[in-house]
């Protein structure tokens, strides 16, 4: 039930990327796809009744290793989130330049030929 819902979230984002005409809506769709992928990776590393991979003082290391959730996808998703921020910033810069050039952010009106 968890994985299919994340897949639906991914498809909602892809729908925005593929069908919507406005550049801002496309950026939002890309952000939603990023959310879904990050969430899927973290959800795969989850363990029933799992606790965060942070060792508390005085805790038995063996019990900690047996009961904690997977730290590896968390570390990589942390990197992915920050890179997603960089991608969105670059897209916003390009969108501002597009608006300056065409006077609109509607992609169907950007293909006019200018003498």
């Amino acid at each position: 039930m968890i994985y299919p819902l994340i897949a639906v979230l991914l498809f909602v984002g892809l729908y925005g990327l593929l069908v919507k005409r406005h550049v801002v809506q496309k950026i939002l769709g890309l952000a939603i796809v990023e959310y879904a992928v990050n969430l899927l990776l973290v959800a795969i590393g989850y363990r029933d009744g799992g606790r965060p991979p942070i060792l508390t003082p005085g805790e038995d290391p063996a019990a900690f290793a047996a009961g904690s959730v997977d730290p590896l996808p968390q570390a990589l998703v942390l990197t992915s989130i920050v890179i997603g921020l960089g991608v969105v910033m670059l897209l916003v810069a390009i969108a501002m330049r597009l608006h300056q050039r065409f006077g609109t952010l509607d992609t169907t009106r950007m293909n006019r030929l200018h003498g």
């Binding site: 968890i2 959800a43 590393g45 290391p61 997977d70 590896l72």
Partner: peptide
Amino acid sequence: FGSGASLPAGHYLENAPAQTGASNVV
């Protein structure tokens, strides 16, 4: 969903506190 951690995760969880001194494995 919730079936457990991967193989390398076990290595990290067992050795990271002793090898790196960090209590947060991430």
